[in-house]
Amino acid sequence: MTAPQFPPRLDGSGRRDRLMSTLVAVSAAYRWLAEFSGRRRPPVREVDRRLPLLVEQTRAEAAGVVSLRLVRPDRAPLPVWRPGAHLDLVLPSGAVRQYSLCGSPSDRSHYRIAVRLLGSASAEAHALTAGTRVTARGPRNAFPFVAAPAYHFVAGGIGITPILPMVQRAEASGADWRLVYTGRDRESMPFLDELPAERVRIRPDKEFGIPASGAELLEEMPAGASVYCCGPLPMITSVRVDLARTDAAAIHYERFAPPPIVAGKPFQVVLRRSGRTLDVPADRSTLDVLREVLPDVPYSCRQGFCGTCEVPAADGGRVRICVDRGPAVLEL
C-alpha cells in the first residue's frame, strides 16, 4: 500500500501537514456528494397558481356595476382569503385585471367580485354570463386588514368592495367602527342594502353639490382608530392630508389607479429586437409609450406589485415598465 501523501506545512519546516490534508479530502468528498445528490434530485417544477372558476351568477348591483359569483367547476371549497384580498381575473382577451373580493371570507363555496364599467377590460367582465368558465390567480392581499380596537372606513364608489368584508369583520369582532361611503349618487353606489345604517354615513356628491373634503370624511372617527380608505386618488389624497389633524393610529389605503408621476425626467428606451428607440416624457411611464407601438404588451395593476408588466432587459434583469423609470434596453 502506498503511504498517504500530505501537503507540506507552511512554516518552512518541510514536514507534511496532516490537518490540511484531511481538510482537503473532506472538501473533495463534500463536492462529490453534492454533485451526486444533485443528479438524483428531481427537477424543480413550477407551481401552477391558476384557479379555474365558473361564473355561477351575475347581478346588477348599481348603475354600471355588476357583481360576479364565481365557483369551482366541481363546487369544491375555494382557497382561504382575508378581507382586503383580490383576484387576478384573466379575461377572454387575455387581459388580466384585479378585482377585490367582496363576499364573506367564511363562505368558501364561492367568491364574489364587483366590476364598474369603465373601459374595454371591464366591458369584457360585464359581458360574462352564467356558465362561462374563467381563470383566476390568487387570492392575493395587498391591502391587509390588521386587528385594532377601533376603525374608520372611507369608501368611494367601487372602493366599497375591499371595505365591505372589513366592515363585516369589524362588526363580528365587536370593535368600535364607522364607515363613510361616498360616490356620485346613490344609484351608482353598490351594496348600500348590505350596510348597517346605524354606523354608516352615506354621502353622495349629488346630494351635497360638491365632493367631500378629507376633513369631512374623517368626521365622527372613533378615538385612536385605524383608517382604511379605498377609492379615487383625489379622495385618498384629501384624507391623507387632513389625517394629520386627527388622533388616528394609522392609515391604510388602496387605489385603483396608478399614482401620478412627480418630478420625473425624460429618458429613452431601446427595443433591442426591433431596433426602435422610444422617447419617454417626464410625465409618462414606459408602459404608456410602449403601448403606442406594441398595443398587446401585457399589464394589469399599473402600480408595480402584480408583476404582469415585467419584461426582460438586455442586461439579464427585468424591468417593471409601469413604474420603473430610466433608460433601458428591453428584449422586445
Rank of each mutant, 00 (worst) to 15 (best):
A3V: 04
P7Q: 14
R9K: 15
R9P: 00
L10W: 13
R16V: 03
D17A: 10
L23H: 12
V24L: 09
A28Q: 05
L33N: 11
L33I: 13
A34V: 07
F36P: 04
G38D: 13
G38R: 14
P42A: 11
V44T: 14
R45T: 07
E46F: 15
E46Y: 15
V47F: 11
D48C: 00
D48Q: 03
D48A: 03
R50A: 04
L51V: 11
R59E: 07
A60I: 11
S67G: 01
R75P: 03
A76K: 08
P77F: 07
P77N: 05
L78G: 07
P79C: 15
W81L: 03
R82M: 02
P83Y: 00
A85F: 02
A85R: 02
L87E: 08
D88N: 10
D88T: 04
P92V: 06
C102E: 08
G103M: 02
R108M: 13
S109T: 07
A114E: 09
L117M: 11
L117T: 09
L118N: 04
S122E: 12
A127I: 01
G131F: 13
G131A: 09
R133M: 04
V134T: 15
V134P: 02
G138T: 13
F143I: 02
V146K: 07
A148T: 01
Y151L: 06
F153E: 01
G159V: 05
G159F: 07
P162N: 15
L164K: 05
M166S: 10
R169Q: 14
G174M: 13
A175G: 00
Y181N: 06
G183D: 12
G183S: 11
R184P: 00
R186V: 01
R186C: 00
R186W: 04
M189N: 03
P190W: 09
F191T: 04
F191H: 02
F191P: 01
E194W: 14
P196F: 12
E198G: 10
V200Y: 08
V200S: 04
I202P: 00
R203Y: 15
R203K: 14
K206G: 05
F208C: 02
A215N: 10
E216L: 13
G224S: 13
G224K: 14
A225K: 05
S226E: 14
S226M: 15
Y228A: 04
P232A: 08
P232L: 08
I236N: 02
I236H: 06
I236V: 07
T237E: 15
R240Q: 13
D242Q: 12
R245V: 06
T246Q: 14
A249T: 09
I251A: 03
H252P: 00
Y253P: 00
A257C: 04
P259C: 02
P259Q: 07
I261F: 10
I261K: 10
A263P: 04
G264W: 14
Q268T: 11
V270F: 08
G275D: 09
R276S: 10
T277H: 13
D279H: 07
P281Y: 15
R284M: 15
R284V: 09
R284D: 11
L287V: 05
L290C: 06
R291I: 12
V293D: 01
D296L: 10
Y299H: 10
E310R: 12
A314G: 07
G316L: 06
R318K: 10
R318S: 07
D324A: 05
R325W: 05
P327Y: 03
V329E: 03
